[in-house]
Simulated scan of single mutants.
Amino acid sequence: MSTPLSHQPVPYQEITEPYYAVEVARTHSLDQAYGDDYVLICTCPRCGAALDIELFDPVYKAASTSAPPNPNPTGAREVPVSCVCRSEHDGRPEGRTGCGAYWPLELS
């Protein structure tokens, strides 16, 4: 994984950019926590916060039973991911975490 950026106190904004997914895909690591559950270790491409995001098996099961068959022959699956940092971001609604950035991550 690349050296994380220092956290940037950007204002809260629910936003995605194509480069978010590209950057996280290039620099993340995915560690098996237990069973079919994983921890995504990455840096938020918007605010630079270091993130550890738990990806639970029910997410995969729900996606596989409610979604149409995956047309990707490699079996890769796209999972929505968002920044969950606890740093301050002006304008963030109460009860939320992160800077508002979100992106898809392809898992295989």
Rank of each mutant, 00 (worst) to 15 (best):
V81I: 14
H89S: 08
Y20M: 05
L55R: 07
P104F: 01
Y60N: 10
T74E: 15
R46A: 14
E88A: 10
V79G: 06
K61V: 15
A101E: 06
Y34D: 11
E78A: 04
G91C: 09
G91L: 08
G98Y: 01
T74V: 10
R96E: 15
S66M: 12
P68H: 11
S87E: 14
P68W: 09
V10Y: 00
S66Y: 08
P69Q: 10
I41A: 00
L51D: 05
E106M: 08
Y102T: 02
C85R: 03
A101D: 08
P45D: 05
Y19R: 11
G48E: 05
C42F: 08
T27G: 05
G48D: 04
T74A: 15
H89F: 05
P18Q: 06
V39E: 12
C42I: 00
H28D: 01
A25I: 00
H89D: 12
I53A: 09
F56L: 08
A76W: 01
L51Q: 13
A76K: 07
W103P: 04
D57N: 07
T3L: 13
H28T: 01
M1S: 13
V39K: 05
I15L: 11
Y60Q: 11
S64M: 14
L107F: 02
C85Y: 03
P71D: 15
L55M: 11
M1P: 04
R92S: 08
I41H: 03
T16D: 06
E17K: 13
S87D: 14
T3F: 04
P93Y: 15
T16E: 07
Y20P: 05
E23L: 10
V79H: 06
A101F: 06
D31Y: 13
T16G: 06
E94P: 01
H89W: 04
A63F: 11
S82V: 03
C99K: 09
Y38W: 09
L30G: 06
T3M: 09
V84F: 09
T16P: 00
E54W: 08
E17H: 14
S66R: 13
T65C: 09
C42D: 10
A33F: 14
S87M: 09
R96G: 00
Y12C: 03
E106S: 14
R46G: 13
A76Y: 02
P11W: 00
T97R: 07
H28G: 00
E78W: 02
E17N: 08
A33S: 12
S66L: 13
W103C: 03
P73C: 04
L51T: 02
R92K: 15
S66K: 11
C85S: 04
G35S: 10
R77V: 10
P104K: 02
Y34S: 11
P11F: 01
C42H: 08
Y60C: 04
V81W: 03
S66Q: 13
W103H: 05
S66P: 01
V10I: 04
C42Q: 02
A50C: 04
E94N: 09
S29Q: 15
P80M: 00
Q13S: 12
R46F: 12
I41W: 00
P71I: 05
A49T: 00
N72V: 05
D57L: 01
S82F: 15
T3H: 07
I41T: 04
V24W: 01
A63P: 02
A62P: 06
Y20V: 02
R92Q: 14
